[in-house]
Each structure stands twice: as C-alpha cells, then as structure tokens.
C-alpha cells in the first residue's frame, strides 16, 4: 500500500496540475455526455417510430462503437488540431451508440396495450410520448446513459494524446517515465469516478423504474425489452 501513499504525496506536491487535470477530465466527460443525450434522445424517439430509419441509423451508430476512440482522435487531429474540441468530438461519438440504442429499445418495449389504452383515453401524440412512453422507457434509457457515462469517463484518458488534458496526462507520464506512482495519480481517480458514476446512475435507474406489485421494480420493464 506504500505506493498509494507515494501517489497521494505526488498528487499533493502537484496540486495545481492535479486539479487542472480533474477539471479537464470532468468537463470533457460531462460535455460529451450532455451533447450525446441532447442529440440522441430525440433521434431515438424518431427511430422508434420508423422501422427502416431505425435500422439504418442504429447500424451507423454501432459502427461508431467499433472504431476505437484512439483512432478517432488521431484521425481528427489533422483536421481539427490539438486540444479540447477534437477530444470532445471523439468522446461524443463514443457516447452516442448506447444512448441511441437504449432510447430506441426502451420506447419499442412499451406494451402496445398500454399505448392503445392511452389512445383510447384521447391522449395526444405528445401526451402519450411524454406521459406514458417516456416514463416507461426511462429505466432503459438511463441504462444507456449509464453505459455511455462509464465509457466516456474511461476513454477521456486518451485525450492526453492530442493535448486534451485530463487524468490521462498522469497516466501517460507514468507509462512513459516508468513510474507506477505517477500512473496511479491518474488511474485511481478515473476508476473512482467511473465507479461513482456507475453507482449513482444505477441508483437513479432503480428510482425511476415503475413499481409493480409482487415483483422487484425493474423486472417487468426489463423482461419486456425486445
């Protein structure tokens, strides 16, 4: 455990650098996630309505999932240069597929009988979406955000390759300088951040799951996913 003490000492000696990296890492992660949510939830609503569009859009998004973030970063470098923006774009691309796919799947998973009942009650298109479909799809949708969030926090470590900053700075310093101490100064906060995000969004997911008598809350919704 001695090495953790040393890592802590190193972080304290380099406080300015550490907090700068923390700020950069959090900003990168949350801005990328926010852009992905704002753009992909509406897109997911759209694809859940149109089968053909869904197939095309979701398959394209899935391609984004296959291309490694580091490749996106280095491919974007000649076009966008160094720094924050190209790193942000690469991370946003990474966050898109899980959010899009889960929004689509969540909405498709809503029981047709429930929708039929809503229509029968005279609810408008928007009313059905806002008051019935989205609340029912929310647990699955948040599941997508949860996946994306952990992936983005983890992958933001790659931003350092093109001067995007973040905890990756320490990780790369540790790797290239043959020092596990410095490496840990970057790696531990990333692991902790990812862990916290996973727990927090998992909790939120449980919180928004509809309560069904005789079952645990999410089971019914999950069971109905296509």
């Amino acid at each position: 455990m001695d090495i953790f003490q040393k890592a802590l000492d190193y972080a304290q000696e380099h406080q300015e650098q550490f907090w700068k990296a923390t700020g950069e890492h959090l900003t990168l992660s949350f801005v990328a996630l926010a852009i992905a949510i704002v753009s992909c939830v509406p897109l997911g609503i759209l694809t859940s309505r149109f089968g053909t569009v869904a197939r095309i859009v979701i398959n394209i998004a899935s391609i984004g999932r296959v291309v490694p973030s580091i490749a996106v970063l280095l491919a974007l470098y000649p076009v966008l240069g160094l720094g924050f923006v190209p790193a942000l774009i690469a991370l946003t691309l990474l966050a898109i597929p899980p959010i899009l796919i889960n929004t689509d799947a969540g909405l498709r998973g809503v029981d047709p009988a429930t929708l039929e009942a809503a229509r029968g009650m005279g609810m408008t298109w928007f009313g059905r979406l806002w008051q019935v479909e989205l609340p029912l799809a929310l647990p699955v949708l948040i599941g997508g955000i949860r996946t994306a969030c952990v992936e983005v926090i983890a992958s933001a470590t790659l931003a350092t390759f093109i001067g995007g900053g973040g905890y990756g700075d320490f990780i790369l310093q540790g790797l290239t300088g043959n020092s596990n101490i410095v490496l840990l100064v970057g790696a531990v906060p990333v692991a902790v951040l990812a862990f916290v995000a996973e727990l927090a969004l998992g909790g939120l997911q449980r919180l928004v799951s509809p309560k069904v008598p005789g079952t645990t809350r999410l089971r019914r919704v999950v069971a109905r996913q296509p």
């Binding site: 890592a7 490496l183 840990l184 790696a187 996973e198 727990l199 449980r206 999410l218």
Partner: peptide
Amino acid sequence: MKRKSFAGLGLAALLLISVLLVACG
C-alpha cells in the same frame, strides 16, 4: 434488476482490482 446491478458493481470492482494489480507489481 438485482442481477443487473450486481453485474455493474462487479464490473466496477474489476476495474479497481486491475488498477490495484498494476499498482502492486
């Protein structure tokens, strides 16, 4: 849900363990 959250926890735990392993050896 239970199973899912366990999977999540397990995943996060794995991450921490792997970091620990890298740290200690």
